[in-house]
Write a protein that binds this DNA or RNA. Structure first.
Length: 199
DNA sequence: CCTACGATCTGCT
DNA sequence: GCAGATCGTAGGG
């Protein structure tokens, strides 16, 4: 029986807690007739109002960031470095622009499809141990920007996987040195001792 | 219109 | 550890 995470989970006002709680949840996609799923093992939190590392900070509404201002539980997918599609989940009340970046996952179902999309023969961490890699493995591209995660294309399930708080490590976020003191915020969460987290 | 650059990844040293 | 790939977005003229 499927337990899709409800909008009320995403709608809460603490993006850091949401980010932490998403570790151990299962990200599922059904695109191009292929179903895949993977456990989230690494996330990062971005706060739209206080966080210089967030695309929407301080209140930048543009064609790219307008997605961040939509309702919670919507996918924010954007292109980075011209090559990589990065998958985020919009959280908090509509119009506040908080988001969680999914940085790494452990494949569960449809592993062979994920390997094929990544052009790899074997199932190994390099299939999905980075934000650009997992998006490619799960078939997520910018064409899925604004997708509602309560629909049938991309969603997150709670499969009852227990992740105790002391099994999650908090650290600095990756690649946000430009954000000044906000670059030091411990808003990156990884599953300890998992070989599936990014480098 | 034009330019600079990025929430990354890969391959080479 | 570091440079290059590659293109949409944002900001300036």
């Amino acid at each position: 029986m499927i337990k899709k995470i409800p909008r009320s989970f995403y709608e809460r006002d603490d993006v850091v807690s949401i980010s932490k709680e998403l570790v151990g949840k299962v990200l599922c996609t059904n695109v191009d007739g292929v179903s895949t799923s993977a456990m989230i093992v690494e996330t990062e939190a971005y706060n739209g109002r206080t966080d210089r590392a967030c695309h929407a900070y301080p209140d930048v509404r543009t064609k790219r960031t307008e997605t961040l201002y939509l309702k919670p539980g919507i996918a924010y997918v954007y292109l980075c470095y011209g090559i990589h599609h990065l998958f985020n989940i919009v959280t908090n009340k509509e119009g506040l622009a908080d988001a969680v970046l999914i940085r790494a996952v452990k494949p569960l179902e449809g592993e062979s499809y994920m390997a094929e999309r990544r052009g790899q023969e074997q199932i190994k961490p390099s299939i999905s141990n980075g934000p650009g890699k997992l998006a490619q493995a799960l078939g997520i591209t910018t064409s899925y920007d604004k997708t509602d995660l309560l629909g049938e294309t991309i969603w997150v399930e709670d499969r009852g996987i227990k992740v105790p708080l002391d099994a999650i490590k908090a650290g600095k976020r990756i690649g946000v040195e430009y954000a000044g003191k906000d670059a030091d915020l411990p808003w990156r969460f990884t599953l300890k001792n998992s070989e599936w987290v990014s480098r």
